[in-house]
């Protein structure tokens, strides 16, 4: 999945999806990370739904593309189209909102089911600056994260806390996965075929709109 660049210095390209309910601060998080901006009146960025960042981790060049996803409940079913072929996922919840943490749990279940362990997960409790209104306990979140093989972070986009660490750790883990995969590829050469197909719409069951249902 990580497309290695030209021979000499390797360049990794990673796709990271950003999942989480609306209003948990996904957008602020990436904007803070990629542009170091928060609630700035003079933000010149046109959009915060697709952002890229170039990193250099231990001599390895890494390009990450961060894919924001629509968090509204009505778009939940579209998740698989978004997170297809992604190397990492950042699952954001709002520490003052119990529901948003439940949503994260749902996402994790789904991701693990669809992508297995190929994807590196980060669970992120955002809005640390609102500690006094916390509704999701630290222990609960951390225990849960560990149980599903994800890392847990606390961040505040407002105070610019914990964000660099989050992405750095995620990148390191994605590099590890990519390297492991390369080694596996070196052994058995059969995997490349199915990793490079594009996006496809999965039509599992075309829903029929019955228009006569209201008459009874």
């Amino acid at each position: 999945m990580a497309s290695a660049g030209a021979g000499g210095g390797k360049t990794y390209s990673f796709k990271v999806v950003l999942l989480g309910e609306g209003c948990v601060g996904k957008t602020s998080l990436v904007l803070r990370y990629c542009e170091n901006k928060f609630n700035d009146k003079h933000i010149t960025t046109l959009q915060a739904s697709f952002l890229t960042k170039k990193l250099n981790i231990g001599g390895k060049r890494v390009n990450i593309a961060i894919w924001d996803t629509a968090g509204q409940e009505r778009f939940h079913a579209l998740g698989p189209i978004y997170y297809r072929d992604s190397n990492g996922a950042i699952l954001v919840y709002d520490i003052t909102d119990e529901d948003s943490f439940q949503k994260v749990k749902n996402w994790v279940k789904e991701l693990r089911k669809m992508l297995g362990n190929d994807i590196s997960l980060c669970i992120v409790g955002n809005k640390l600056d609102l500690e006094k209104d916390r509704h999701v306990s630290v222990e609960e979140a951390e225990v849960y994260a560990e149980s599903v093989g994800a890392k847990h972070f606390h961040t505040s986009a407002k105070l610019n806390k914990g964000i660099e660490e989050l992405f750095l750790d995620l990148c390191k883990r994605m590099i590890e996965t990519a390297q492991a995969e390369e080694r596996a590829k070196g052994n058995g050469n059969g995997q490349s075929a199915n990793t490079r197909r594009g996006v496809q719409i999965v039509d599992d069951e075309p829903q029929q709109q019955s228009s006569g249902g209201c008459c009874s």
Binding site: S3, S49, D85, V199, I201, D203
Partner: peptide, 30 residues
């Protein structure tokens, strides 16, 4: 999907918008 150079489709910005279009179509269908 079938004939685009996959590297563009998978990680690039164009790919992101294309994915969104796919999502839009899937949403409209359902």
């Amino acid at each position: 999907t079938r004939f685009c150079n996959p590297s563009r489709l998978m990680t690039g910005e164009d790919g992101y918008y294309f994915t969104n279009l796919c999502c839009a179509v899937a949403f409209i269908e359902k």
